[in-house]
Structures are given as C-alpha cells and as structure tokens.
Amino acid sequence: MKKEITFTLNNEEVIVEVDPKWTLIHLLREVLELTGTKEGCGVGECGACTVIVDGEAVNSCLYPVMEVEGKTVATIEGVALPDGTLHPIQQAFIENNGVQCGYCTSGMIMSAKALLDKKSDPTEDEIRTGISGNICRCTGYVQIVESIQLAAERMKK
C-alpha cells in the first residue's frame, strides 16, 4: 500500500513512493541511499539520526515518513556547498578533533547547525543543551563544544 509524497530534501524537490510504516531514516538510508545519517539506537536515545526538518533538529528514527509531506528536510549530505567546500561547522570539527570514530558526527553537526542557524552567538550552556540529545562515546564532548564555538566565531565574520 505505497503512497506518494513530495518534499524538499537538501534544496531539491523529491517525489517518492513510501510505505506508511516507514520512518524518515528508512527513507533516507535504505531508499534514497543517503547513508550519511546514522542509526544508533533506533528509539530516540542517541541522536545519531538527527536531521533538520523545517528548521528544527529531530530524530529521524522516530519521524513517521508520512509527516514529511510538504516539509523541508536537511541532512548531512546537504551541509557542504555543492562544489565540496565544507561548512564552517564541518571544518571546525576536523581542525579541533571534534571527530574520532565519526559515528555521532553527522548527528552532532546537524544539531549544531540547527542551533547556529537560530542563534549565531550561543553560550556554552546553550551549545550543551543544543547537543544534549546526541551521545558521543569517543570525544568526551569537550572538543565538540569547542568546535561549535570555533564555527560560531567564524560564521559571524
């Protein structure tokens, strides 16, 4: 019982047949083959699957695909410029060792982007709240927070 939905994905209109029982992450990874978005727990606890829907960070593992109709979705694949130039957040994560194994990184960057898109000059507290739904088993978070601070500074210029 497939249904057709239309939505905007990383600035492009997408028309796709979906099964109503899918979640957004299933559509992204298994159907559209955008595997940058990771699945960790599948139940909202880890944030590895974070994408931005209409400007808000959400867990794509809990997002019913039928609610994507008409929405604007941003995933890690659309964060760099089309010519491959990295986004300041990505650049800062690399320079500042915000990435170790990388499993949490796509989600972290999407949470950071949702925050910085709304607030260009967040406090450390706001940054920590912004990534409170993203678990990282490697870095201990300090480098991640610093990476986001560095990106915020550069983006202001």
Partner: peptide
C-alpha cells in the same frame, strides 16, 4: 523532557 530533538516534536 528528553532532549532538544525530543522536545521539538
């Protein structure tokens, strides 16, 4: 409640 991502929906 939960996290930012949870509270957003």
């Amino acid at each position: 409640v939960g996290s930012k991502q949870i509270r957003n929906v």
